[in-house]
């Protein structure tokens, strides 16, 4: 799991980053809000947890949360704000700006671990949901491809695709869905085939 730590106080950033590294997280440190935002804008694909100090030069932690939610509404990011005990009344404003959680500075290691576990649970759940949506989207796309008017040869039953090539019906369906074919002979065709074979035998005996 990647974790971004943003704090302009290098002591606070070092303690937090080193504690997270002791727990084997992949930690990046940003020295101010603008650097934190640039980092978050560059990692939109991966689930990311960020711990942002509220009071930082250039962009405050709450501003970073606001920009992330506005500019990357679909990014799978769990944002935690760090605030001092005296500023606890700003927690509501921070959550309304787009933060998922907050911590009081200096953090308590056990509480930090527990809150990070909550964040990981949320990120994992969101990632699984996104995967599921993608799978459903793919399935829907395939179903769509089998809709509509299909030109089929009345004699050989080949289907003409969008590329104008005629394809055997099994191949056409297999390419556009998860269906696979196992070949066999149905009872009416088996009877027909038997009759043909019998006719063929008679003809050979006559000749």
């Amino acid at each position: 799991m990647k974790i971004l730590v943003a704090d302009d106080d290098r002591i606070a950033a070092t303690v937090l980053a080193q504690t997270l590294r002791q727990w084997e997280f992949d930690v990046t440190v940003a020295a101010d809000g603008a650097e934190a935002l640039r980092h978050l804008q560059s990692v939109t694909a991966a689930p990311t947890l960020a711990i942002l100090d509220w009071m930082m030069p250039q962009l405050e932690g709450a501003d970073v949360c606001r920009r992330v939610r506005l500019e990357m509404p679909w990014a799978n990011m769990y944002l935690m704000l760090l605030t001092s005990l005296e500023s606890k009344d700003r927690v509501i404003a921070g959550l309304e700006a787009g933060a998922d959680d907050y911590l009081i500075k200096p953090f308590d290691p056990d509480e930090l671990r527990a809150r990070i576990n909550v964040g990981i649970r949320v990120l994992t759940l969101q990632e699984r949901l996104a995967e599921r949506v993608n799978q459903l989207q793919d399935a829907l796309t395939n179903v769509k491809q089998l809709h509509g008017l299909l030109p089929i040869c009345s004699y050989c039953k080949r289907i003409r695709g969008d590329d104008q090539y005629w394809t055997a019906v099994e191949s056409y369906i297999a390419e556009r869905s998860d269906a696979q074919f196992s070949h066999g002979i149905c009872p009416p065709c088996a009877s027909e085939l038997e009759r043909e074979i019998e006719k063929h035998k008679h003809r050979r005996q006559r000749d």
Binding site: I11, T14, V15, Q18, T19, P106, P109
Partner: peptide, 21 residues
């Protein structure tokens, strides 16, 4: 000691930073 998770290296580092800053 508790804050730094018993990591003597981390404790020394932040003490050094404080004395510098």
């Amino acid at each position: 000691e508790r804050q730094t998770g018993g990591d003597a290296g981390l404790r020394s580092e932040i003490v050094r930073m404080f004395l510098e800053d």
